[in-house]
């Protein structure tokens, strides 16, 4: 994998460094990046780590009740882009985002905007399952507790059960809710993290390669879950696996070295890519 990436770096090195020197310049995106009923609207988003630009002028919408997948080779900036959608990049020193990202028409990088309620509306599931070192129950109850979403224990119990049900984990853990979440298997841990996220009832869920640490069976379960969650949430998922993108998403965006190269209907992208780079990637020439 790494050697492949190096090969790409070599092949495209001259071009990308010229681009870097140019700063704002970005490649035009092939395809229609808007959604019919958009929940999040991103226009000309640049992301900088210090003086290094990681994302070049990306424009992309995330529609209601749809799954948008983002694919591309390692280091193409898809995770960086995802993390900028709920300002998780704030925790990284020297990270800067310009351009416009709106959630329901509200600019999320506005000076006055508070990331805390934003993140309650835009949840995130990470690459490696990261349950808190608490019981299963407390892991799910954490979000509702800090936000004060329930008024009493019974409501909280109900919310926890409901979230675990939605995450498809209830039957496996209902008898051991008081045991530590870290004791579950990898796939269960990831579903616990998803349950933890949906317990807050966010509007958008961001998933950063949620299955890369899981075995195929666990992956299948989580993919099924993502499809179900689409009924209630908008989902943006970063994935390494093109098959996964094809299985779970309605629209797919292909990133390459910080540029959004092509975006469109998933079946369209995989059967009939317009851009040379997209075609090379999905036909397995690199990545």
């Amino acid at each position: 994998m790494n050697t492949m990436v190096e090969a790409i770096d070599k092949a495209t090195g001259a071009m990308s460094s010229a681009e870097l020197a140019g700063g704002q310049h970005s490649r035009a995106t092939v395809g229609d990046f808007t959604a019919v009923d958009p929940r999040m609207v991103c226009r000309n988003v640049d992301v900088w780590y210090g003086s290094k630009q990681a994302i070049h002028g990306v424009s992309l919408d995330i529609g209601k009740n749809e799954v948008v997948s983002m694919i591309g080779p390692s280091g193409c900036g898809k995770s960086t882009f995802l993390r900028s959608l709920n300002r998780m990049n704030d925790t990284i020193v020297g990270c800067r985002v310009t351009g416009s990202i709106q959630l329901d028409g509200q600019e999320i990088y506005d000076k006055g905007l508070d990331p805390v309620p934003l993140r309650a509306r835009v949840g995130m599931v990470f690459q490696k399952p990261n349950p808190f070192p608490k019981s299963i129950y407390e892991n799910v109850a954490y979000g509702p507790r800090i936000h004060g979403l329930t008024n009493n224990k019974a409501e909280l119990d109900e919310l926890v059960e409901d979230s675990l049900q939605k995450a498809g984990l209830w039957n496996e853990v209902k008898d051991r809710l008081d045991q530590p979440g870290t004791g579950l298997s990898g796939g269960q841990q990831q579903r616990l993290c998803i349950a933890r996220t949906i317990a807050v009832s966010p509007e958008v869920i961001l998933m950063d390669e949620p299955c890369s640490a899981l075995d195929p069976i666990a992956t299948a379960i989580v993919e099924e879950l993502i499809d179900e969650l689409r009924q209630n949430f908008s989902i943006a998922i970063v994935t390494h696996s093109m098959q996964q993108a094809a299985r779970v998403s309605q629209r797919t965006a292909y990133f390459h070295l910080g540029d959004l190269i092509e975006v469109g209907e998933t079946n369209h992208i995989f059967t009939n890519p317009q851009h040379k780079l997209t075609e090379d990637y999905i036909t397995g020439r690199f990545g």
Binding site: N86, M88, T91, P115, V116, P117, L118, R119, A120, R121, G123, M124, V125, F126, K128, N130, P131, F132, P133, Y142, G143, I146, H147, C193, R196, T197, V200
Partner: peptide, 14 residues
Amino acid sequence: PQSMRDGSYALGAT
């Protein structure tokens, strides 16, 4: 690990 902090911030914790 940072992932613990990330997990908590992503849920909207202060």
